[in-house]
Amino acid sequence: MIHSATYNNRFGRKAFFITLLVVCTVVLSIGCLMFGSVDIPAGDVWKSLIGGDVSREAWRTIVLHTRVPMVITAFVAGCALAVAGLLLQTCFDNPLAGPSILGVSTGASLGVAVVMLACAGMVAGVGQYVGALVGALAGAAVVLCVLLLFARVVHSSTMLLIVGILVGYFASSAISLLNFFATQEGVHSFIIWGLGTFSGVSLDRAALFAAVTLPVVALSMLLVKPLNALLLGARYAESLGVDIKGVRVRLLMASGALTAFVTAFCGPIGFLGLIVPHIARIMLRTSNHSVLMPVTALTGGATALLCALVSVLPAGVGVIPVNAITPVIGVPIVVYVIVCRKRLMYFN
């Protein structure tokens, strides 16, 4: 007997969930603008945004220079990590792949650590940001090269995942060693950065972050056709005319760049890259990237905004590190995916 659930009513779903996600993104963004460690009346938040008269000038500064950049940073970081996770999951044909699991985030962190700790005092101001960005890119690239190298020898995707985890440990220990030998001030700023936050980015840096990251998200959308072929496995993809080596390099470069950008600006953010593609697949009931990719990006943005909102909700106490919130959302989803793997269909 064939029941209706085995059939696909994806197009209704697609329209419904895209609408839902847009609404969620807007509502969560408004939430992030309204709430924070300082209570600001809604009217004044609105007036600060449109440039009207605000009761207290400090409120305008808070809204424009703390909350607006946080909304932009969270949304863009969420999109980037989610897309990076999707690219890695399809590339390695593994539901548990993700930038933080495969050690890409840790590699990027190591790059930043080298810049912030080893080169502390040598560069300052904007130079430090550029340095962190370059360091993160280099770190992510090194990890991805190591993974690519192992992928030639190790054909089981589970083993490759373990290699990624080990590479991540290796990078972590290198970070610890750098911390141990670094100067006090360097360690302090690095530890704060290392907690991972969407709210430590100023307005112009948030704009810079969006300007470098969103084009890579858009470029990733161009890989939809080979990604769909890869769902049949690398052998079939090649027989369908996909240049496997070239596509793999492009996939890893895109996911590496996205992870590196987020890590450089927000610190290492865990879990989002792993879980968001699953949320998107569960909602859409498809692994067809032409639908899945944009919805994953949107879901990533909305999920990150949710995390950002939760992180600022305890008014007066300060900001909870994002990495303390993502596992609370992420772990149940990962467990669900592992337990219901057969029923979820998309990786069997």
Binding site: K225, L232, L240, G241, R281, N288, Y346, F347
Partner: peptide, 28 residues
Amino acid sequence: YTERTHAGALTVDEVVGLGRQPYTGFFG
């Protein structure tokens, strides 16, 4: 090929449609 294929959350017509990839445009 002999080996089992995954792609569980693609529909049959989508998988058969992938056979058109050598002819379709940039987005497939």
